[in-house]
Design a protein around this nucleic acid. Structure first.
Length: 108
DNA sequence: ACACTGACCACTG
DNA sequence: CCAGTGGCCAGTG
């Protein structure tokens, strides 16, 4: 039995607008637990199999593409983000705070 | 049941 | 900026 946690994570990730990104911690915080940021990452591991979940829009708190290694080919994650208008430099989003999307703040 | 790991985060020094 | 520590929850051997 998988916890609703997963479903909730997927829902939030699906709601992330194109050209925006959010962090594992932000999602975890939105769901009520701060430490569960790890679980979010773990949930994404499952999520990456689902085409409906844009996992490439979920980065760590620095806007760094920590999970790029999990995308089949290297550069895939960056490419997807750049297509949506984000600028990536050194595996990091340029002007990250400018494109940051907080589920608890803008989704409310 | 125990130990270790993980796409993390915050605090401290 | 880097290293260490604690927290959080679930999976695996």
């Amino acid at each position: 039995m998988k916890p609703n946690f997963f479903e909730d994570v997927y829902e939030v990730v699906k709601l992330i607008p194109p050209g925006r990104w959010t962090s594992y911690g932000a999602i975890a915080q939105y769901l009520g637990t701060r430490g569960s940021a790890r679980m979010v990452g773990w949930a994404m591991n499952n999520a990456h199999a689902l085409p409906e979940v844009p996992a490439h829009r979920v980065l760590n708190r620095h806007g760094q593409l920590t999970g790029k290694h999990h995308f089949g080919t290297s550069g895939q994650m960056q490419a997807l983000l750049e297509i949506e208008g984000l600028q990536i430099q050194e595996d990091r989003v340029v002007d990250a705070q400018m494109y940051y999307w907080d589920p608890g703040r803008e989704l409310i």
